[in-house]
Amino acid sequence: MIADGLRVLFCGINPGLMSAATGHHFARPGNRFWPVLHGSGFTPRRLDPSEQGELLSYGLGITNVAARPSARADELGKAELVEGGVLLTQRVLRHRPRWLAVVGVTAYRVAFADPRAAIGPQERTIGDTRIWALPNPSGLNAGWTTGAMVEEFGRLRAAAGD
């Protein structure tokens, strides 16, 4: 779900098995992406993964770093993430969103060869597109509460404007 000139292009790591089966991003019931997106003010209501097409009407898009589905993101190899980073860079240069929000700082570090990257805005840009690394909303990411994720996504929303 990408269009030219988006406010924010959200980028997951890769499709989980349920996302691959349904064709909808962040489709696993325990994933917190959709509740956090709403809680942070990006959407006026909580969208179901099947409603991902509505993101475009809010100036938002969604894609992945890597295309291969897996049960867990840590099943991807470094080469897959690096190749995904190259392809993602090409997509960003073609569609020129204001912000690229990579949902998973560990994958961002590998895909963009930036081992010291932390959650938040990055120094690196892709053309005119700014980059923000966000926490992974997977239910497996116990290091981030839903409330803390809402706060971090909210920081991005404020930076991205309306």
Results as ranks from 00 to 15, higher is better:
residue 67 A to N: 08
residue 67 A to K: 07
residue 68 R to Q: 11
residue 69 P to M: 11
residue 70 S to G: 15
residue 71 A to N: 15
residue 71 A to V: 15
residue 73 A to R: 11
residue 75 E to M: 08
residue 75 E to K: 01
residue 77 G to R: 08
residue 78 K to T: 10
residue 79 A to V: 10
residue 80 E to G: 12
residue 82 V to D: 06
residue 82 V to C: 10
residue 82 V to T: 10
residue 83 E to I: 15
residue 85 G to E: 07
residue 85 G to H: 04
residue 85 G to K: 01
residue 85 G to M: 02
residue 87 L to D: 04
residue 87 L to P: 00
residue 89 T to E: 13
residue 89 T to A: 11
residue 90 Q to C: 07
residue 94 R to W: 12
residue 94 R to L: 08
residue 97 P to H: 02
residue 98 R to C: 05
residue 98 R to V: 05
residue 100 L to E: 06
residue 100 L to C: 12
residue 101 A to M: 07
residue 104 G to P: 08
residue 104 G to H: 08
residue 106 T to A: 15
residue 107 A to M: 13
residue 110 V to C: 06
residue 111 A to T: 14
residue 112 F to H: 07
residue 114 D to M: 00
residue 114 D to A: 03
residue 114 D to Q: 02
residue 114 D to C: 03
residue 117 A to P: 09
residue 119 I to H: 03
residue 119 I to F: 01
residue 119 I to D: 03
residue 120 G to Y: 00
residue 122 Q to V: 03
residue 122 Q to N: 06
residue 122 Q to Y: 01
residue 122 Q to D: 10
residue 123 E to Q: 02
residue 125 T to Q: 08
residue 126 I to C: 08
residue 128 D to P: 13
residue 129 T to F: 01
residue 131 I to K: 04
residue 132 W to H: 02
residue 133 A to T: 11
residue 133 A to G: 11
residue 134 L to G: 10
residue 134 L to W: 06
residue 135 P to E: 01
residue 137 P to F: 05
